[in-house]
Each structure stands twice: as structure tokens, then as C-alpha cells.
Amino acid sequence: MLRGSCLCGDVTFETSAPPQGPSMCHCSQCRKQSGGVWASAFVAENALQISGDVLWFEASETAKRGSCPRCGAYLFWKAHDEDTMSFALGALDGPTGIKIERHIFVADKGDFYDIADGLEQKD
């Protein structure tokens, strides 16, 4: 079981499903919302149990982003046409055993850092 929460603890989540697609997103939306690179993985939406009130922001015509209305922690990403939900790896409690597989939206990354870990990079 993986468990996580926001900074203040008002929003918690858990899943027993194996996380898929662990990645680091470098898109400008993730950078602006998180202040840097956003690490996430996804599970089927119905396999993620969320407790607490989530503030959903329609970031684009294709997806919404979920955060805690109290502390502002950015926790979730959901494409409108998919049945999966991404969650912030940084919000997980304890060791996870999850390893990042790739970097995504690297064409949009900030110019203030380099990606030098040898993992797959997708534009």
C-alpha cells in the first residue's frame, strides 16, 4: 500500500495498485505549479482513494490538476479522456521502491538545470 498526503495533512491518498510510468515532467505548467520538476506516477483512477477536499484547476482543455486548498500542495494530474490519475511521488510517505523511468516534456524544460541521469527523454 502506498500512502501520501499534502504538507498540512488535510488531503491524503492511498493505493494498493502498482504505480505505472514514474516520470519527471518538465513542462511549463508543472514547473509553474510546483516550482520545479514534477515527479509522478499513475494508477487507474478507481484504484486511488483520496480523502479530503481537493481544489481542481482546469489547467488546459485536456487535463485538470488537483491541489490542497489549505497548504497549496500540488498532488494530482488527470487527463479528461483517460481513466488514470497521476499522483505526486514527492507526497508519498516512507520508502516507495519506485524508480523514475523517463523525463517528459523536456523540450519545455527550464534552462537553469541539466538532465544528466541517462534516462529516456521525451519531448
Score class of each variant (00 low, 15 high):
residue 1 M to E: 14
residue 2 L to C: 10
residue 2 L to V: 14
residue 3 R to K: 15
residue 6 C to A: 03
residue 6 C to D: 04
residue 7 L to F: 09
residue 8 C to Q: 03
residue 9 G to C: 03
residue 10 D to V: 01
residue 11 V to K: 02
residue 12 T to F: 06
residue 12 T to S: 08
residue 14 E to Q: 14
residue 14 E to H: 13
residue 15 T to E: 08
residue 15 T to R: 04
residue 16 S to V: 15
residue 21 G to I: 02
residue 22 P to K: 10
residue 22 P to C: 11
residue 22 P to T: 09
residue 23 S to K: 10
residue 24 M to G: 09
residue 25 C to W: 11
residue 25 C to N: 06
residue 26 H to Q: 10
residue 27 C to H: 04
residue 27 C to D: 01
residue 28 S to Q: 14
residue 29 Q to S: 15
residue 30 C to M: 02
residue 32 K to S: 15
residue 33 Q to E: 07
residue 35 G to E: 07
residue 38 W to N: 11
residue 38 W to H: 12
residue 39 A to C: 08
residue 40 S to N: 14
residue 41 A to W: 05
residue 41 A to N: 12
residue 43 V to P: 14
residue 44 A to L: 14
residue 44 A to V: 13
residue 46 N to H: 07
residue 47 A to Q: 14
residue 47 A to Y: 00
residue 48 L to R: 04
residue 49 Q to G: 05
residue 49 Q to K: 10
residue 50 I to T: 02
residue 50 I to C: 03
residue 51 S to L: 02
residue 52 G to N: 01
residue 53 D to Y: 01
residue 53 D to T: 03
residue 54 V to T: 01
residue 56 W to P: 01
residue 58 E to C: 01
residue 59 A to W: 06
residue 60 S to C: 04
residue 61 E to K: 07
residue 61 E to F: 02
residue 64 K to I: 01
residue 65 R to N: 09
residue 65 R to W: 07
residue 65 R to D: 11
residue 66 G to W: 02
residue 66 G to C: 04
residue 66 G to Y: 03
residue 66 G to V: 03
residue 67 S to G: 10
residue 67 S to R: 06
residue 67 S to N: 05
residue 68 C to Q: 01
residue 70 R to G: 01
residue 72 G to Q: 03
residue 72 G to P: 06
residue 74 Y to S: 11
residue 75 L to G: 02
residue 75 L to A: 05
residue 76 F to Y: 03
residue 78 K to N: 13
residue 78 K to I: 04
residue 78 K to Y: 08
residue 78 K to L: 12
residue 79 A to L: 15
residue 80 H to V: 00
residue 81 D to I: 00
residue 82 E to G: 11
residue 83 D to E: 15
residue 83 D to Q: 15
residue 83 D to C: 11
residue 84 T to P: 09
residue 84 T to F: 10
residue 85 M to K: 10
residue 86 S to N: 15
residue 86 S to I: 09
residue 89 L to V: 09
residue 89 L to N: 12
residue 89 L to W: 06
residue 90 G to P: 12
residue 92 L to K: 09
residue 93 D to M: 00
residue 93 D to H: 14
residue 93 D to W: 00
residue 94 G to R: 12
residue 94 G to S: 13
residue 94 G to N: 13
residue 94 G to W: 10
residue 97 G to N: 13
residue 97 G to Q: 14
residue 98 I to L: 14
residue 98 I to S: 12
residue 98 I to Y: 05
residue 99 K to H: 06
residue 100 I to E: 10
residue 100 I to T: 12
residue 100 I to H: 03
residue 101 E to V: 00
residue 102 R to C: 09
residue 103 H to N: 06
residue 103 H to R: 04
residue 104 I to W: 07
residue 105 F to K: 09
residue 106 V to Q: 06
residue 106 V to W: 09
residue 108 D to F: 07
residue 108 D to Y: 05
residue 109 K to G: 08
residue 109 K to W: 10
residue 111 D to V: 01
residue 113 Y to K: 04
residue 114 D to F: 13
residue 114 D to H: 12
residue 115 I to L: 12
residue 116 A to H: 07
residue 117 D to G: 06
residue 118 G to F: 07
residue 120 E to C: 06
residue 120 E to T: 13
residue 121 Q to P: 01
residue 121 Q to L: 07
residue 122 K to S: 08
residue 123 D to I: 00
